[in-house]
């Protein structure tokens, strides 16, 4: 579904655009893979195997399903927001006022 081709832009203009979008998509795909693997792998598909392991009083699979995945989601969003701030700045597309302060 994620297609990155940018038709109809002259090369110098199109280059940074393509590069910015490619980096955004790469970050997104990595984070979404973790988003999928932790709850569905640890909390559903392999929950019974992981429950054999004890984690601070909790069966590990049970803990991932009822606590761990929520912490994972939170960290993923934070990583995305921080990394995108850097990416936006790097490509000069962050939202700033005339003095260069964040809006």
């Amino acid at each position: 579904m994620a297609q990155t081709d940018d038709q109809g832009h002259s090369p110098p203009e199109g280059d940074w655009r393509r590069e910015y979008w490619r980096r955004n998509l790469r970050l997104m795909v990595i984070l979404l893979s973790i988003w999928f693997i932790v709850p569905f792998g640890g909390g559903v598909l392999f929950v019974e195997q992981l429950n054999q392991v004890s984690f601070g009083g909790y069966p590990l699979g049970f803990w991932i399903a009822q606590q761990g995945s929520i912490y994972t989601f939170l960290i993923l969003i934070l990583i995305y927001a921080v990394r995108m701030d850097r990416l936006d700045d790097k490509f000069g597309v962050s939202e700033r006022d005339e003095e260069g302060q964040r809006r």
Partner: peptide, 19 residues
């Protein structure tokens, strides 16, 4: 939709102290 703002020619990183 893909770019939060218009591109500035001067990159902000480094030039703005509080970024």
């Amino acid at each position: 939709l893909r770019y939060p703002a218009e591109r500035r020619t001067v990159p902000t990183t480094g030039s703005s102290g509080n970024s």
